[in-house]
């Protein structure tokens, strides 16, 4: 009748994108008359932050403050095609498409500015605060708002760009089975400390620490937020969630959130995360995907920590108190037999 303490870890390599059927996303960028740039996408932001990342990518290329970029994901009927926000592909695919579109728009923007300033477009650069300026000069510059106004009402041009990212469909080699199904892989390792009560079978996650290598963290705050949220989801999968606790028997299946168990705010341990950045050549500013993988490594890490704590090896999810107690019984029986 005691609490046992243990530590477990698990590592994960996770693909960015999944080009089993071709994996395209497209983006359109255009200047409004005020010099605010619109990025049109069909990629849905369901809270993971793709609108923020798209705005950052466009602003970086166009030389604008991020506030001067509007991301429009309003309508998948009329927007440029996106395969979808899944497979940790959003930042990588959509980011690349936005960068390509913004580069094309930037070229036109510099041509319009060059005509206004009566200089060569090749001699112009952006300063990141919303101005196009002559390289090497601090005085000779024009605001991007004035460039947009000139394009619309004087020169009669659209400052716009088209972008797409597509990694062509890849088939497995019939001889070896080898294939190229993704664009990059992110890596992570999670270390978990748990306590296991051998009387009740209850597992408490005491601490969860992760380290991630994800190319470049385009938005570090959002990366850490994904890791924290994903850690919770991993704990939830490992210890709580199931629709059919006695599958295939439907009995005790949850019918509402009051019996579909998930960790509440006080069941969530301290979570720390460290990010290592090794920019990947084919990523937007070196970024790879992180979304889905954050829920992965906590699960085996928790199972390993339970084994380390009390010798119970549970191979089914979720690791409920009942399963822990049955595994402890099995471990004792094996010990007696031996």
């Amino acid at each position: 009748m005691a609490k046992h303490f243990g530590r477990g870890f698990a590592a994960v390599n996770y693909p960015t994108g999944m080009n089993l059927g071709g994996d395209p996303s497209q983006a359109l960028v255009h200047a409004t008359p005020t010099g605010v740039f619109s990025v049109v996408l069909s990629s849905v932001d369901l809270g993971q932050g793709i609108k923020t990342i798209a705005a950052q990518c466009a602003a970086e290329v166009l030389g604008l403050p991020v506030e001067n970029v509007l991301v429009d994901t309003a309508d998948t009927d009329t927007g440029p095609h996106c395969m979808g926000t899944f497979a940790s592909r959003g930042t990588h695919r959509v980011g690349n498409a936005v960068i390509m579109a913004a580069r094309e728009a930037r070229e036109v923007m510099l041509e319009v500015a060059a005509e206004e300033m009566e200089v060569d477009a090749a001699d112009l650069e952006t300063d990141g605060t919303g101005f196009v300026k002559l390289k090497g000069s601090e005085e000779k510059k024009i605001s991007i708002m004035d460039v947009a106004l000139a394009a619309h009402f004087k020169q009669g041009r659209t400052i716009s760009g088209r972008g797409m990212f597509m990694k062509p469909r890849n088939y497995p080699d019939p001889e070896t089975g080898a294939m190229d199904p993704d664009s990059a892989q992110s890596h992570a390792c999670t270390v978990v400390d748990v306590s296991v009560d051998d009387e009740t079978g209850e597992v408490e996650v005491l601490k969860l620490q992760s380290v991630y290598e994800l190319g470049r963290a385009l938005n570090p705050a959002m990366v850490h937020q994904q890791i924290t949220g994903g850690a919770w989801m991993g704990i939830s999968h490992a210890l709580y969630e199931t629709t059919e606790p006695y599958y295939p028997d439907r009995s005790h299946g949850p019918v509402s959130f009051s019996d579909y168990l998930m960790p509440g705010p006080s069941d969530t341990p301290p979570v720390t995360s460290v990010v290592i950045e090794r920019p990947v050549a084919n990523g937007p500013f070196g970024g790879k995907g992180i979304g889905e993988m954050t829920a992965n490594s906590p699960i085996p890490a928790i199972a390993n920590a339970i084994f380390d704590a009390c010798g119970a090896r549970v191979e089914e999810l979720p690791i409920t108190p009942e399963r822990v107690l049955r595994a402890l019984d099995a471990a004792r029986e094996t010990a007696v037999e031996a």
């Binding site: 937020q225 924290t228 994903g230 919770w232 998930m262 705010p265 969530t268």
Partner: peptide
Amino acid sequence: ISGNVCRCTGYHPI
């Protein structure tokens, strides 16, 4: 907030 379900954040930021 123990009766309020959040599926995304892991509660810490809230």
